[in-house]
Write a protein that binds this DNA or RNA. Structure first.
Lengths: 246, 246
DNA sequence: TCGTGTTGGTGTCAAAATGACACTTATAAT
DNA sequence: ATTATAAGTGTCATTTTGACACCAACACGA
């Protein structure tokens, strides 16, 4: 059986990665050539159309596999974009026509966010040479309506982490330092916290366990590593004892 | 120009109303007849397919007009439902076939929540005699996957109000008592609060103004009326002085 | 090996917020 | 006048917050 893609329905994935200091987004370089000559270029989110018989969540997962080679990471739908003229700018029409589709077809896109620590992709990023991490602040002037999609994803993920701190740990490696945790909160929420107060609160929430391990390989005092404990988190949540926000 | 409905894409609206004591949802009675004989009945959310050239938000607004006659109320997209077999139960297939559509067409539905005080519809509810408010706890065994859609909407709206208390006032009439406010929070979040502590906090947040008006027409002490003040809320939010959660 | 640069890590105190708790008041109906 | 019902109010002990400055550990280069 031949699977048919639905021309009118697509999925876009906003893949967010935290590197210990800053928040990044994975973007594809989109280059438009006329013969040999580069006419223009910009960047776009990862996305694709979905198959007629395919679950939307599964399509999002498939896009992760296609672009970054893994899909066992945090992935969640956040919004659907359906303005009738959302892909109507000249470059976008040119691009769609060049890839053999009809630029007049209205496309509705379901947005998903994926979260992971950037290090998790260090070896996989060679899969596609035109895919790279971009600092979140430099990700502007994107293809289609991807500025809007990215912005909506960021708002969504802020809300999500505020309500459900466990989501934030998807941005951190299994073992992390409290400074990395603080940087993560600071770059997601674009605020800054007092170091001592932040650490006091982080330790008190009760779902991070200090390990007897220290982060080495640096030119200064090694930092103690911590690990997020899902079971403790679940118990605290069930008992209504979750103190959520930093 | 004849407008064409998109068979594969629909919008469902979860219309939630608060009556001062309980949370309610607006449902349509769905009755299936064979000739004169009622074969089965259940209830469904309000929804419809969208036009090919229609913005999704506009389609949701249109559905409100169709079913309740107004659309100047809180309305927000919350999730898109796209499991390939989401409308595959026997009754649902029977219903779709009887209305002249192909039950094998996969339908993707974008979910919207609307919020309003039930009193706002007292005069409009005659529009359709098969539409009624149902207590949120009695709204089960709905048509299609509407149990899931309703449940997702409730979770969404809890999160929304928790993060952005202003949304909660969409459930209250312009002038409300603190007891109504407390009931609203208690029924949305399914918890209970200490009356004195609740009122202390409600007054301290600073975006509700007490009026020199009292709610009459009841058999006991009249309650003072309050009004939500959007401007004060915006100022507090901008200054980061919003204390959000009850 | 000593100094320097850099990040990790720690405690106190005053102010504010929270949570627990019980009685009086105003009204309409009888 | 009595009754039933929901409105409205204050205190105190405990917990949480926010402001604030210095020493410790390591790698590197002089």
């Amino acid at each position: 059986m031949v699977r048919k893609l639905n021309d009118a329905l697509s999925v876009d994935c906003v893949i967010l990665g935290f590197d210990g200091k800053d928040l990044n987004v994975l973007l594809i370089d989109r280059r438009f050539y006329e013969g040999e000559k580069l006419l223009w270029e910009d960047k776009s989110l990862t996305g694709n159309h979905i198959y007629e018989d395919e679950d939307i969540d599964v399509a999002a997962s498939r896009i992760l596999i296609d672009w970054i080679g893994i899909n066992n990471i945090y992935l969640e739908q956040f919004h659907t974009f359906g303005e009738p003229d959302r892909v109507n700018r000249p470059h976008d029409r040119q691009w769609i026509a060049a890839s053999g589709r009809n630029p007049d077809t209205r496309i509705i896109s379901v947005g998903y966010v994926a979260l992971l620590p950037t290090v998790q992709l260090d070896s996989n990023l060679k899969l596609h040479e035109n895919v790279r991490w971009y600092n979140i602040d430099s990700a502007t002037n994107l293809a289609f309506d991807h500025d809007l999609i990215l912005d909506t994803a960021l708002k969504y993920i802020r809300h999500k982490i505020e309500l459900d701190p466990s989501a934030g740990f998807a941005l951190l490696p299994e073992k992390f330092t409290l400074t990395q945790l603080q940087n993560m909160y600071e770059s997601v929420f674009k605020v800054s916290y007092d170091k001592r107060n932040f650490r006091r609160k982080a330790i008190k929430v009760g779902y991070m366990e200090p390990l007897e391990e220290w982060q080495g390989g640096r030119t200064n005092k090694p930092a103690q590593l911590y690990r997020y404990n899902q079971e403790r988190y679940d118990v605290l949540q069930k008992n209504g004892r979750l103190s959520s926000i930093f």
